[in-house]
Design a protein around this nucleic acid. Structure first.
Lengths: 252, 252
DNA sequence: AAGTGGTCTAGACCACTAC
DNA sequence: TAGTGGTCTAGACCACTTC
């Protein structure tokens, strides 16, 4: 049959569209309070439960933040800039403009919840590092905070036969970090590869990084190889997508 | 007061947790049907509306896909690999393993919905290209499909004074694409920079890329510069996050 | 026609926050 | 204490898909 009657837009969608427009136009600016469930219900002549759907819709789009007892507010965007740029091409892009939030300066996260242990690698980590059967790894897990809020969880894996006895197995690896220590050991990382994937967080990830609905995570698997091409570290990171701008540069 | 009674987990959260575990453990594999609203209601002794919240929760986490009249199914993950790798470091990573879906081969998207027009640039595009007041640009907009499903929208901007009269202003720029033509014009792009940001899609983006709930988008702003460091193209892309693995490599 | 997802009303109750 | 977000029941109705 042609000529189907087009589905009438849902009330909660229509109301959400009004608020959405106000948020995008900054008529409702970041941090500003959004109408409450009861206000929406009264203003638009719907029940509270329908009003809830409106707020749920906006929250799932990442436009608002809510918590029990507190008013729902428009979410802000103050990203951290993460640069992964080759030294050579850095010169070319020195004065590179950013389309997003050019006025926000780079911020350095602090480390939180650090654990350093020797353990048997998963099959995956073993194959990523090219390890033999039975070889162990040192894992350095840490969470990063900015302004007191968690923004990233990172797990770094290093072959035990390479780093055993070095400061890398200590909580504080010393000035320059683990890459400087790998250099001391004759395995300075010079080649890097990163694989990125984006999805919604698992409940555990959401808890760990305090993510509300509508906040995706970026998973980065980073491989670092020395001059001989040996992979000396793999690092899997989970970033709160709402907190980051990622930047890459390369030549061809 | 210390010793607050911990909030009892919501019924819909508890039920969702059961299904979530079955999805993660692949007991409910990708493509498999998930219990319907009525089944959940009957199985767990709740009302249909509560059962809906369970399915909404899973959908917002990107775990399931639903459509009117059809059963809700577990979402699959067959990503496209997008490589942005420097020629030199390509050798190092030739045999690089991937932690995600190693068995999925690279797939080449087809182009859809191409428009090529000369127009006045937005202030943003003008400043990104370093254009003078009044200068115009050629915009090449296109959508990419894989297996008939849209996966990316890309808008490429090129200075009109550079490309006027060249095949770049035609729908088909010829073999090698616009980068080869820029080379013909003496402005071969050799330096690249990409800025990435991730968020939930706007309703328009969701419509254009046919994104369900729980599907983030990746925004990529790509700058291409020639040997003199002049930015000869900027390209803003919007990718369906669920369809891509992004890969970068660089040396230091 | 049966089953599915989707919308909406009506009203009760709970927990947390700010005042 | 008042206002906020959050949970749940009860039941009606709609639109789309599959058979």
């Amino acid at each position: 049959m042609a000529g189907q009657a087009p589905r009438k837009p849902a009330k909660h969608d229509a109301i959400a569209e009004i608020l959405r427009a106000q948020i995008y136009s900054r008529e409702l600016p970041p941090g500003h309070r959004v109408p409450s469930e009861n206000e929406i219900a009264a203003d638009h002549g719907v029940l509270k439960d329908t009003a809830r759907k409106v707020l749920a819709e906006l929250a799932n789009e990442g436009l608002t933040e809510s918590a029990q007892g507190k008013a729902t507010v428009v979410r802000g965007f103050r990203p951290i800039r993460r640069r992964s740029i080759q030294r050579l091409s850095a010169e070319v892009w020195e004065h590179g403009k950013s389309i997003w939030d050019v006025d926000v300066p780079d911020r350095q996260p602090e480390v939180d919840d650090l654990t350093v242990v020797e353990e048997e690698p998963s099959d995956l980590v073993a194959s990523m590092l090219g390890l033999d059967e039975g070889a162990t790894v040192w894992r350095r897990s840490r969470r990063y905070l900015v302004d007191g809020a968690p923004v990233m969880r990172a797990n770094s894996y290093l072959p035990a036969d390479l780093v055993a006895g070095s400061p890398i197995t200590q909580p504080d690896p010393g000035s320059g970090g683990i890459y400087a220590r790998l250099g001391d050991l004759g395995h300075k990382p010079v080649h890097f590869r990163e694989e990125l994937r984006v999805r919604m967080p698992t409940p555990e990830e959401a808890r760990d990084l305090r993510l509300g609905p509508g906040t995706p995570v970026v998973l980065i698997a980073r491989y670092a190889a020395d001059d001989d091409g040996r992979v000396v570290e793999v690092n899997d990171m989970t970033l709160s997508a709402a907190k980051y701008i990622l930047e890459y540069a390369f030549d061809s």
